[in-house]
Amino acid sequence: MVRKSVPGETLAAYTFLAPFLALLGIFALWPLGQAFWLSFHAFDLFSPPRWIGLANYRRLLTQGDFWISIKNTFVYTGVVVSAQTALALGLALLMDQQLRGKTFFRVAFFLPSVTSSVAIALIFTFLFVKTGFLNAALAWLHLDVVLRGFGLQTPVDWLGNPRTALWAIMAQNVWSTAGFFMIVFLAGLQAIPETLFEAARVDGASRRQLLWHVTLPQLRPTLFFVVTMGMIGCFQVFDQVYVMTDGGPLKATLTTAYLVYKEAFVNFNMGYACAIAFVLATIIFACTMVQKRLLGE
């Protein structure tokens, strides 16, 4: 994809990009720069920032909460991204064919991503409480035995138990995003030229071979997009934690983005919050680059 740039083309490109870059610069890169600068300062939002070098970064290495949050964030991202991508891709492949009621299914699967977040939070709280629907359903299916096998007391207080709270939030996230990513995959699938399939069929490829040798390779850009977006969203998970658990119980759902918020807005530690944010951004960036290598841009 890398080709030589041409001066005239460069000007054209920046003309196309100008409005976007202006907004990006003013409202994302400029504050980003400020945040980076602040990460080397002690700043309580009111007194002038005081230069303290790497002290914020040194401090986070020794602070237990930071490491807890990193662990939670990684578990969260790993599980949610793989689950939502697999589910979305599976559903999209199922739906990319002649089907009755295709529109209906598409709308139904998309519904979770448009339901208002406040409503979702309440609904899931309802589902997850000890006396709630989930426990009743599990007991009805006699699956509570399995939970007891894991050493959980049934019925489970899903959001109140440190062993299950993060999983409950992960389930909620997968539920609300899988449908959306399915639509993205579907768009990707439909953009694959039919000629490719026909050529392969002529060569006598089986359905499975079509999937492995035509569909999936052609889906790479979409897959890259879905995984990257999923990862960026998950690494920064904040809303669900803010609304449903406040990081508890016992820090079981304390994610790094939530820690950033807490340090900045509850503890008046803007400089420290910025340092955490940059470490997190670096981690996300590294993971994206690895991912880019793997899926080959």
Binding site: A28, L32, C274, L280
Partner: peptide
């Protein structure tokens, strides 16, 4: 890279600088 970077920083640290702008 700048685009990706801007997506990777937790938005909460940008609140105060953006508010000031």
């Amino acid at each position: 890279i700048l685009m990706l970077a801007s997506l990777m920083i937790p938005g909460q640290v940008l609140w105060i600088p953006n508010y000031a702008t």
